[in-house]
């Protein structure tokens, strides 16, 4: 297969998977750009930040950091806390994001919630190059976010139309991804642990602080369940 054909087929296979992200990121990115705009920043701030950070929630929090007093250590620790869930993605992607040459570096750089979820669960056709498929998923998502944020930053205050509720597209996507995973696995213990522990922590710690305790709880419960889970061979999630 020539390189051009290979790229083309990977792009064609990847694009449909990113359509929900197109809707979601365009909207969230714009919201972020508008937020930066009304906070008094020129459009090139959201442009630069959407390009280099590419982690939605951290970027929203960064706006507040930029408006406050200079505290780089706090900026670093806050970001580590908000994005700690990426550690779990990395552990899950050790095999997939390996052996794709230099593309691996970009795949890891761009491993946001959405890129990870698609690249982990997508059934990539056998005749499509896996590395390039995952590369295009990540690149397209990155572009949507970048253009959304930049346009929001430029046109921020001029836009008026009723998009209330459009952000639900992200929730809907994660529900579908959760269901796809659910339909693939033989045993649902891990999925139920994820939902259950997260809900308990949300109730116990509140919406601002529940992620880290939820991660610790999930890790703890799954570690305790290691023997029974390995015995029942549930380890068939995704493609494994």
């Amino acid at each position: 297969m020539s390189n051009r054909v290979k790229l083309k087929s990977a792009f064609k296979a990847a694009f449909p998977h990113t359509i929900p992200i197109f809707a979601g990121f365009w909207f969230l990115g714009m919201t972020y750009g508008i937020y930066m705009n009304v906070s008094g920043f020129s459009f090139w701030y959201p442009m630069l930040m959407s390009l280099t950070i590419f982690a939605g929630s951290a970027e929203f929090v960064a706006v507040n950091m930029l408006l406050g007093a200079f505290n780089p250590i706090q900026a670093l620790t806050m970001t580590l806390m908000i994005n700690a869930r990426h550690l779990f993605y990395g552990i899950s992607m050790l095999d997939k994001y390996h052996g794709n040459g230099l593309k691996d570096i970009y795949l890891i750089f761009g491993m946001c919630d959405e890129s990870f979820s698609i690249n982990y669960t997508a059934d990539i056709p056998a005749d499509v190059d896996r590395g390039w498929f995952m590369f295009f998923v990540t690149l397209l998502n990155h572009c949507y976010w970048f253009f959304g944020a930049t346009l929001g930053g430029i046109f921020g205050s001029l836009i008026h139309f009723n998009t209330e509720g459009l952000d639900f597209v992200m929730t809907a996507m994660f529900v579908v991804i959760f269901m796809e995973q659910w339909m693939k696995e033989k045993n649902h213990i891990s999925a139920l642990v994820g939902i259950g522990v997260s809900l308990l922590c949300l109730i116990g710690f509140g919406s601002e602080n529940f992620i880290i305790p939820a991660m610790a709880g999930i890790l703890g419960v799954l570690t305790l369940l290691r023997r029974p889970l390995e015995k029942s061979e549930i380890c068939d999630g995704g493609e494994a």
């Binding site: 779990f88 050790l94 999925a191 939820a214 999930i218």
Partner: peptide, 23 residues
């Protein structure tokens, strides 16, 4: 142990993400 986590974590993480969206 890490290989095991790599296999069981995704299902739990997708659950966490759904809850995160609804927080």
């Amino acid at each position: 142990y890490i290989q095991y986590l790599g296999k069981v974590l995704p299902a739990a993480v997708f659950g966490l993400l759904v809850v995160y969206c609804l927080k």
